[in-house]
Design a protein around this nucleic acid. Sequence first.
RNA 1: CCCCUUGUAGUUCAAUGGAAAGAACAUCCCCGUCCUAAGGGGGUGAUGAGGGUUCGAUUCCUUCCAAGGGGACCA
Length: 524
Amino acid sequence: MLKTKIADCLKKVIKESLPIEIFVPENEKFGHYSTNAALRLAKILKRNPMEIAEETSSKLKAQNLKFFEKIEVAAPGFINFWLTPKVLQNELKEILKQKEKYGSLKLGKNKKINIEFISANPTGPLTIGNGRGGFCGDVLANVLEKAGYEAVREYYINDTGEQIKKLGHSVLGDEQAVYEGDYIENLRKNIAEKNPVKVGEKVAKIILEETIKPAVKKMGIRFDEWFSEKSLYKNQAVEKTINELEKKNLIYKKEGAIWFQSTKFGDDKDRVLIKADGEKTYFASDIAYLKNKFERNSDKLIIFLGADHFGYIGRMKAAAEALGYKKENLVFIIIQLVRLLKEGKEVRMSKRTGSYVTIDELIDEVGLDAARFFFLMSSPDTHMNFDLDLAKEQSLKNPVYYAQYAAVRIQGILAKLKNSAKSKSAKDGKIDFNLLNTVEDINLTRMLARFPEIVETAAENYNPQALVRFALDLSREFHNFYEKEKIIGEKQELVASRLELIKAAQIVFKNLFNLLGISLPQKM
RNA sequence: CCCCUUGUAGUUCAAUGGAAAGAACAUCCCCGUCCUAAGGGGGUGAUGAGGGUUCGAUUCCUUCCAAGGGGACCA
């Protein structure tokens, strides 16, 4: 990574230990890369930042590195770097050499991260809300794998308990019914059973297999593990976990129920594990599940939760600590709820009332790529508004096409050159990367070289949105290049080197689209 | 009442405490396609309000206002 190479140079001349931040300034006149190290240092040393910047810069220059073409100091104390063409050309060669491995990092050191997402109850179809969390979780898993972690994608199936019973009642259509919708009606036809729990379990299995799993497939998501809650009861894991807490004296009885002292670990209030009627709460099996995941050698657990489940975090972290796990290794990512609008008015989305938009519906309407891009563009914190009619109407304007079109333009050139005589001779001759010396050549190369840096940022901050932004930046840079610099029709030597440049661009686009789970069309 | 999240252009979204707050869509002007114009160039336009910390704040602290979500022996 160019960024770390610059940081390494700086570390040689800065003795104080401080994290060196290298970033790409927004304005071109501030260089290819820039650092605020002198400003940071000024605080520690209580000296004038400009002086420190000047000193550092002259020390760097004194080393006479072939790395920098120019180093400048700018008020109030930034040090700005321009890289030599050679450095950029080498990075280009690196892309061409590494191909699909370009951007892969060793950040994760093969540590195992378990990522649980969607995990919607098998009581109905997946909604656009599940879609949002699903795409986000999927791409995060991709990014973490690219960064060198071993990622396990997991779906937890709540296939037992209160919700299943309610589902059974709903299908039976008795007074305790809560779920409504066509799918309930359809299921009713095939059920002869009368016991609500049995009906619920049977129907949950049908919904899981015939509705949820196909929807997940349609979303372009593959889970490594579909984990059944019921299995935790079958193998006594829930019992064992409660016993373990009991041994640690973290359990007490009150008003007929069994409580876990989660307040000892920072939770707001203690939580019930076994209700007075003898039924275990979902929380009880959730703890057992937590333990199970850690016991499968996961170094870290990431759990995606809808904002309506926010209250779970405190008790789950408390449980993790109580069981002897570090709470830093339990990460929750909260996805804000998607607000459904119809004709500009808010519709309360609920499986219980049957008012929702399914993810299948959305994908059918706008296509998978546009759907993925749409949700991946905004951060999980954003309270999104979603209007299906508007989404349909605007789907053709989805920025995903802007990015895909850039990649398609590359394919177009490559296809055309394949048949031309020029490329043949170019293949034989040596490639002179020095010919790539226009502003557009250099800017495109710089942008391509940022790909590993973006992977790093996205992986470190669990922030897949960074990839989407990069996709748009890269596309803009490419369109810009395409507009200004011709390839076909130039001198042979230049055609040859430009060809290498766009091949490198194609590699980065491919790797990037793979991470995002969007397709790279041949034509548009 | 308490807790969490959010408030940025007309709209949908960006911005590890950094330099002149970025895109896209909409809108206005230009490029008429010679590697597919699903493109390029340019204009208009925004940090909810007030304090504070900092060389520097959309970002951190604080008060207020607004929206959403929690606060069950529901999930």
